[in-house]
Design a protein around this nucleic acid. Sequence first.
DNA 1: CTAAAACCTGACGTTGACGTCAAAGGCAGC
DNA 2: GCTGCCTTTGACGTCAACGTCAGGTTTTAG
Lengths: 130, 130
Amino acid sequence: MRIGDVAAAAGVSTRALRYYEEQGLLTSERSPSGQRHYGDDAVRRVRWIQALYAAGLNSKAITGLLPCVHTGVATDEMITHLAAERDRIDAQIRDLTTTRERLDGIIDAARDRNPECDLSAEAATAGSAG
Amino acid sequence: MRIGDVAAAAGVSTRALRYYEEQGLLTSERSPSGQRHYGDDAVRRVRWIQALYAAGLNSKAITGLLPCVHTGVATDEMITHLAAERDRIDAQIRDLTTTRERLDGIIDAARDRNPECDLSAEAATAGSAG
DNA sequence: CTAAAACCTGACGTTGACGTCAAAGGCAGC
DNA sequence: GCTGCCTTTGACGTCAACGTCAGGTTTTAG
């Protein structure tokens, strides 16, 4: 696969892929003319990178985790690190859940206060995800 | 309360509080000499601001939501907006939960592969939160 | 062969929530 | 009035994950 294919398949820009390579997160074979070529697992790797970015990790942290994430092989230290990041994600989920519940409470209270609002709006919101 | 008191109580910097005021997220009374003074609810408001930042909202979005969040009074439009943000937080929680579960799977698999690792390390991780 | 599309490196630009420093004014204890 | 801490405005610095543009090369479609 060439860089554009991987980018399309993973839903990121080619710039992002070059950035990942620059950060040591992604490697590529080069054709004689210098063009990048990737194996099929590159897409899964990029999806992992995105997921870990979304979880609040930065490039350096991901660099430390990706080897064992991708290969399944990890040293004790790596596992400790993995568990620590998992705990951080857990805490993040808890905080977000609290915020979500409080928002829910406010929404419900406001709907009680107001004349039933327009419930069709909520159905529209649920449909227009993206 | 003066700005330093609010900052300490809410766990943020005074710079952050001035920034919130600059963004229209937080108001303050001024003493004749120009120093800021806050009511007790300022701390709760700041905690809300932090929670919404942590949920991925930016200053502009928070500006639109804070009035109804804090007072409980909301127009139909505000409620729609609130519900939309709640849905986004939901999606974020789902993504994070997926990532967390996959990390868990990797950790378990690596522990099976390795000789039981050192389980004391995990207890240490659980204790050193912060 | 040609034109278009994709790719390359290199480098500067962007954004947002602050950090940090400077220079000056205000407030409490002594 | 001195000392020391807190506060003020103003303005530049930061950091990370890219966006974007420039100028050139390579691959592909017809």
